[in-house]
Amino acid sequence: MGDDIMLVQVYLDDIIFESTDQKMVDEFQDVMQKRFKMSSLGAINFFLGLQVDQTEKGIFLHQSKYVADILSRFKMEDELIAKNPLSVNHGITPENTGPKVNLTLYNAIIGSLMYLTASRPDIIFATCLCARYQAQPNVNHMLAVKKIMRYLKGTPSLGLWYPRKDEFDLMAFSDSDYGGCKRDFKSTSEGCQFLGSRLISWQCKKQTAVAQSMCEAEYIAANPVNHSNTKHIGIKYHFIRDCYEKKLIDVQQIGTTTQRADLFTKVFDRPRFLFLLNVLGVKDRAEVVSNKELLK
């Protein structure tokens, strides 16, 4: 219908649909209910553990209930609060000299944290780093994952804020460390994508091959899907340059102070950490949502 659009997402026996035209929503709902045995739950507010708060000003996604659940499950409700998910000098290494810990418990915590990263980009680097040691975790690794949990205790209602009135320009930030993994010295790629100021996806992934230079690591981070092996560095270079010359993309150098993707591959002190959360649109629910403003 003109410039209006409809989006439909299906997951097993659950379905979400929305449109820029309410008439399209009503017609689609009528058709689905006539052809299938289904019921409508109205405006979305909870889906697969993800809570959705809708207001006239925008949408806030969070997992506050899930945070409370995992803190209770792992008996962390009475622990002291941590201000950061990971210490700058965290000391997490692949050395197996420390006392071993309960493998089942460690992996259960990692799995729970991984699910939480769907709305919490602030913990993805710390969680991914700890996940590398799931085979033989020691006491230092357990202390690290428990610190992430203690950080969650102090920030249970952090989530992603999507303002209604904003631009829709697509921007992507990518970066890489160099040989950051202390086990195999592979680099870690990180990236984040925005529609205007809205964070829509983010990544933190160890590269599949050992980069021979910082330049190679950066190219892999900029183009991780089509050319993930460093032996194809020439292809990476020409692929990115070709896209740039055809004006399919605009490549710009990002200074260290404004590199939003850094949150996904580095550890920072609290002021820098809070700055990155702000530019990524990670907010506390109380900052942007009032119960009086919630749409029913």
Rank of each mutant, 00 (worst) to 15 (best):
E18P: 03
N45A: 10
Q51H: 15
L41A: 08
T20I: 10
L41G: 04
A43S: 15
Q33A: 06
V8Y: 01
D53M: 03
A43E: 12
V8K: 01
F46R: 13
Q54W: 07
R35C: 14
F17D: 00
V31D: 08
Q9T: 14
G49Q: 08
I15Y: 01
Q29D: 14
G49S: 09
T55H: 07
T20W: 04
S39Y: 06
D30H: 15
L7T: 15
L41C: 12
T55L: 11
E18N: 11
D13C: 15
F28P: 01
T20Y: 07
F46C: 13
Q22N: 05
S19G: 13
G49W: 09
Q9W: 10
G42N: 06
R35W: 07
K37I: 02
F36E: 04
F28A: 03
M24N: 04
G49Y: 07
I16D: 05
F28T: 03
T20Q: 05
D13F: 15
I16R: 09
V8F: 01
V10M: 15
L48G: 14
Y11N: 02
L50T: 04
Q54H: 10
L12Q: 08
T55C: 07
V25C: 13
D13V: 08
D26I: 11
F17S: 00
V25G: 07
Q33P: 00
L12D: 10
N45L: 01
Q9L: 09
Q29F: 06
S40R: 12
K23E: 09
D14F: 02
D14R: 03
S40E: 12
L48A: 09
L41H: 08
L48C: 07
F47Y: 09
E56R: 13
F47G: 02
F47E: 02
L48R: 15
E56M: 03
Q22Y: 15
D53G: 01
Q9N: 11
Q51K: 15
A43G: 08
Q54N: 05
G42F: 09
I44M: 12
G49C: 02
V10G: 02
S19P: 12
V31P: 00
V8E: 00
L7P: 01
F17C: 00
M32W: 10
D26V: 12
T20F: 03
V8G: 00
S40C: 07
S39F: 02
I15H: 00
F46A: 06
Q54T: 14
T55R: 04
D53A: 08
D30F: 04
F28E: 04
V10I: 12
N45T: 11
V25W: 05
